[in-house]
Design a protein around this nucleic acid. Structure first.
Lengths: 342, 342
DNA sequence: TTGTAAGCGTTATCAC
DNA sequence: GTGATAACGCTTACAA
């Protein structure tokens, strides 16, 4: 049982290895970093390192090399499957580059987000991916003096100098409306999330775009705003909507809202899509879990996250290049909740 | 525009602060660490730090103090809402203690998990919470020589000396069966995940326990094993099940499986719970999203995660204390999918 | 090719 | 109470 307690005290350092291999720590370091040495030195150091199970200390290495080997991802809400998808995509990129991923769930809180950017001064990460629903002037300011590269997923305030990737959610919402119209619907309702957020505002515009291009009248009675981009608020909003009018299709501003709407429809015994067609936005994994499966606008969450990660790595390599702005296309994914033949 | 490019180069160090305040770096450090100094020194340093926006370098600090201020959480699959819940719970504890959280999604891969434990030698975290579905002898061995504290969520091999928190999923499954029986069901089917996993094996046993205590016969025709603890496999398993027999209740070994089962039931036009009652396990957020809402066994995911985090912090403080083993109770949450009056 | 030594930014131990 | 100063473990000029 020797060492069974406090076992995690004795970690060998490069000095241990060097001594054991009978070389200088410089040589040991060279071998560990793949810098050419004599075959003899190489063999001795490799063997010694193996023997003691040497692993370089992360803190010492980053102190010296000014690289932490870590990146961070900050998102509004880890409970939302969209962000889970993003985390997965970022992690793939991170893994491929031997980077660790740190996660922050900000609760969409502005001060939290700002603090996070400020905290980059700790230099605990090489860069940050910030997914935010509402990027203010203050963000712009904080970002301009960030201590490490930042890539934003969202819509920064005009003029913000920062790598950005955003979705075409306005276009996507419009497309969804057109699709619902094409399946024969005429009273297309819209359950939105808070409209002061960027997604709320732009999806609302997209909804109007869609109506217009179908030659449908805008009818405020068909619009309901939920208190949050989540399921229960979506359900309550749908109930309010159905209490006062009877649409033949409903577009939820995101999948969570749509799932809530679906529950409300089920509860009233309305058939989907027979009585009311339904579509969401985000094309999250949720869409395949519901019944009927949910038509949704794929806003390229995984792609946006992956691109953001790549932009970040890129900028870490080349800190002074011009900021880039990447838009990711929206694409409608038709499933049973709006299919004519269901 | 001065400094707009390469802005993230010039981070002030404690030397900057000390010079500006006209004190030694030792004094500056003391002030920053809340160690008593003269009011004068305190004021000068505080002001200087404020002025230059000083923030201590994380790498240097951990190199010296042997604390990273980071903990890691490794889980099988970030796409599973159970783990999302756990992440949330752990993050709360971490935040409260000013710790950063690093995330790993292992894909339930054994080698991945082992590598993670080995990587603790990098000392990039102060501790690790490892959620695993299958803890082998190799895990036990690797854990016994881990370079930092580890807390396991799951069922370690016998004799493993490690802080552990586990669910009572066998008891939970039994309780679910009894509940279904009490609502009048007699042909209670079971859709399990892979049975070589720990949860798969113990929930199967729980299912049998439940049948027995209800005086019901075990009938292998009513058992179907899905290829994975996920929705689509659950759906396919349910289809196979319904192709050969007609249960009046189905227990899914987790919520994802149950959601898949629900889709299969809907598809055949079977009413839930009228024709077939349904229950899942985990009581994940998913349960409130389905229609009808899903009865599920709360295995205390959030609680387990929180406790694991607390055990970890505890052990970080006191590395040599005896390992603790905490079980978290299961509790049935009845919802519409099994409610008699639905 | 190898070793010596400086230094990354902190904290902590000394004398004063 | 404060200021030198020695680590922490590593990488990298520079010399040999």
């Amino acid at each position: 049982m020797a060492g069974s307690d406090g076992a995690y005290e004795s970690v060998p350092t490069i000095t241990t290895v060097a001594r054991l291999a009978n070389v200088s720590i410089a040589s040991a370091s060279r071998v560990m970093n793949g810098i050419r040495t004599s075959p003899d030195t190489f063999a001795r150091v490799t063997e010694a390192a193996e023997a003691v199970g040497y692993v370089p200390n992360a803190a010492a290495r980053s102190l010296r090399s000014r690289r932490t080997g870590q990146i961070a991802f900050a998102m509004p809400d880890i409970g939302n499957p969209v962000y889970t998808t993003m985390v997965g995509a970022i992690q793939e990129v991170a893994r491929a580059h031997d980077l660790r991923l740190i996660l922050h769930s900000t609760g969409a809180d502005r001060d939290d987000e700002l603090a996070l950017v400020r905290d980059l001064k700790h230099r605990y990460v090489d860069g940050l991916i910030l997914a935010s629903l509402d990027l203010t002037e203050e963000h712009a300011e904080e970002l301009s003096s960030a201590a490490a590269p930042v890539v934003v997923i969202g819509r920064p305030a005009k003029g913000t100098q920062v790598d950005t990737v955003h979705a075409h959610s306005r276009k996507g919402a419009a497309e969804a409306v057109r699709h619902l119209c094409e399946t024969g619907c005429e009273r297309i309702a819209f359950v939105n999330g808070p409209e002061h957020t960027v997604p709320g505002a732009s999806r609302r515009l997209g909804y109007f775009d869609g109506l217009r291009s179908c030659g449908l009248e805008r009818d405020d009675e068909l619009i309901e705003v939920a208190t949050d981009f989540m399921s229960q608020p979506g359900r309550r909003a749908a109930e309010a909507l159905l209490d006062r009018t009877r649409p033949d299709a409903i577009l939820g501003a995101n999948d969570l809202l749509a799932v809530g709407v679906l529950a409300a429809l089920h509860e009233r015994g309305l058939d989907v899509p027979g009585d009311v067609a339904l579509a969401g936005m985000d094309d999250s994994p949720l869409c395949e879990l519901t019944w009927p499966s949910l038509t949704s606008v794929d806003l390229g969450s995984a792609a946006r996250a992956r691109i953001a990660a790549e932009l970040l790595l890129d900028r870490i390599e080349e800190p002074d290049r011009e900021p880039r702005l990447v838009g990711v296309d929206a694409r409608l994914v038709v499933r049973a909740s709006s299919a004519a033949s269901a």
